[in-house]
Design a protein around this nucleic acid. Structure first.
Length: 513
DNA sequence: ATGTAC
């Protein structure tokens, strides 16, 4: 992609991010930023530092990806840097324009006197990834008939249509948003998730986020109904369930062994979030922040970017309720996986085990200790990648560091990485995926179904099977909508933020609508 | 991303 293309893309994205300042002024801003872009410092190892008018932006990208970033993403970073007291702001190579803040942003404030921004967390709070290992190898599901059967069996348990209701009526919503995985009935923490029942939830990043439950009183009654109805449902857009086959990276074979991963093994990768529960939170509390800002006379160049100090009623209400959405997202992925396990049992027999490898998020703000200080780390489309030995690692991963789950696109590859100690320079944040190069609308206009189906190898023995009769309905999720994931991985590996443990190629894909 | 918002 050349620079002109990226500029056109970013200009057309303006429609999604309306701004109250006149168009002419925006052009001037972009030109100022463009001049400053030439003044960036190159630290080497895919790490660039850009002196924007409002502060410094770190960019972790190889030269090719760096050259493809349009002016609009720098304009957005400049807006975000205007929030007082920012300590660190960065882009991972998958950075692209989002609402108020780019996807691919890591932004940090001190807990003591810092700010929180629902715009930097983004709309799908707690959205993230989960991977389960299976006892199957590629040969077991190469037959298309078997894969079709598997897709059908999973769809019986995991609703993929927007309005279909949860399979589970015996889950107490208040319990799970309060206690996370610990609030689930015991039968949903099956032995088959792990050889040892006791460890199954210690494998995930956070089994429970604690918060002041008095704030749950702010949740309106329709939300409780909707939340209950959507437990264990997939959602639409980029959310998916994939059956993938893994190839271990030679140099990391030792870690792969410890994680129980083998060459040619089939794994289940899940991408989903907090559904309507978290979406409501973002919408509802954005209003709170707007009122706070107008009371204080604080304006922004982008009305979609709202923020308030952590130590305000508004900040506290948002943070506490955001944690309920993180709990929702984790149990939602857990229950999706439970549905997949039931589907697997139907096809491969009741003895199938499906241990969870890991579950982690890429949209949230979390209090973390850095340099001995408590800081609020916002990750909007970035993934935490803790290095070996870091004390925040989940118990089974203390020694190795935890698996970092990075989806590609449905026609390419996904990756499992592990963090590096040098990642401290970016608050241990890496990319969250390939990142879009085209908006949904632009993809539908520019990519044909033929191009899409040829990248899915339709009609060949290597065909990646999809649960949709026609690819037309999910055209905006075609591989052509995304950056080249190999370039993204090359960027973070070259920046010494993480290394590759395994490459995962899709064999079957389940998408929502 | 979202029973796609006012």
């Amino acid at each position: 992609m050349n620079e002109n293309d990226s500029l056109i893309f970013n200009m057309s994205d303006r429609a999604d991010t309306p701004s109250r300042i006149p168009f002419v002024v925006q052009v001037v801003v972009i030109q100022i930023v463009k001049e400053l872009m030439d003044l960036y410092t190159d630290h080497g190892n895919n790490h660039k530092e850009i002196p924007l008018p409002a502060g410094r932006l770190h960019v972790f990208a190889n030269d090719e990806i760096f050259a493809s970033l349009g002016a609009k993403v720098y304009d957005m970073a400049d807006n975000n840097l205007r929030i007082p007291g920012n300590i660190h702001m960065s882009y991972t190579p998958d950075a692209h324009v989002g609402i108020g803040t780019c996807i691919g942003t890591t932004a940090v404030w001190d807990m003591a006197d810092g700010y929180v921004s629902p715009s930097i967390v983004g709309s799908d709070i707690g959205c993230g990834m989960r991977v389960h290992l299976t006892p199957l190898s590629k040969e077991d599901i190469l037959d298309k008939k078997v894969r079709r059967e598997l897709i059908r069996a999973v769809e019986k348990m995991v609703p993929v249509n927007n309005r279909s209701a949860s399979t589970y009526q015996d889950i107490d919503l208040e319990k799970v948003v309060t206690h996370g995985l610990k609030g689930l009935p015991q039968q949903y923490i099956p032995d088959a998730y792990t050889p040892n029942r006791k460890t199954s939830i210690s494998h995930v990043e956070n089994a429970q986020f604690t918060f002041d439950t008095d704030y749950l009183e702010y949740i309106q009654s329709p939300q409780w109904g909707r939340g209950k109805k959507q437990i264990g449902t997939l959602g639409g857009g980029n959310h998916f369930i994939e059956f993938q086959v893994i190839e271990i990276e030679e140099e990391q074979r030792e870690i792969a062994d410890k994680w129980g991963m083998k060459d040619g093994q089939v794994v289940v990768m899940i991408h989903s979030g907090s559904r309507a529960w978290g979406a409501m939170m973002g919408r509802e509390y954005k209003k709170d922040f707007e009122i706070w800002m107008s009371k204080k006379g604080i304006g922004t160049r982008d009305p979609n970017l709202v923020f308030a100090p952590i130590n305000t009623d508004e900040g506290q209400r948002y943070l506490n309720l955001m944690y309920s959405a993180l709990n929702y997202a984790v149990i939602n992925r857990h229950m999706i996986a439970y549905g997949v396990l039931e589907g697997m049992k139907e096809v491969f027999g009741s003895k199938v085990e499906m241990p969870v490898l890991y579950d982690l998020m890429h949209n949230y703000a979390l209090e973390e200790k850095h340099d001995g200080k408590s800081r609020l780390v916002h990750r909007k489309g970035t993934t935490r990648a803790l290095p070996p030995g870091h004390s925040l690692n989940a118990t089974p991963y203390q020694e190795t560091g935890h698996p970092v789950l990075i989806p590609g696109s449905m026609g390419t590859a996904s990756y499992i990485l592990v963090g590096q100690s040098e990642g401290v320079k970016n608050y241990y944040s890496v990319c969250h995926g390939a990142g879009r190069i085209r908006s949904r609308r632009a993809t539908k206009e520019q990519v044909t179904v033929d191009e899409f189906s040829s990248s899915m190898k339709v009609g060949t023995d290597e065909e990646i099977l999809v649960n949709h009769r026609s690819l037309q309905t999910i055209l905006d999720e075609s591989p052509q909508a995304y950056k080249d994931v190999d370039q993204i991985i090359d960027s973070v590996v070259g920046a010494n933020l993480a290394t590759v443990v395994a490459r995962c190629r899709p064999l079957a894909v389940i998408k929502g609508v």
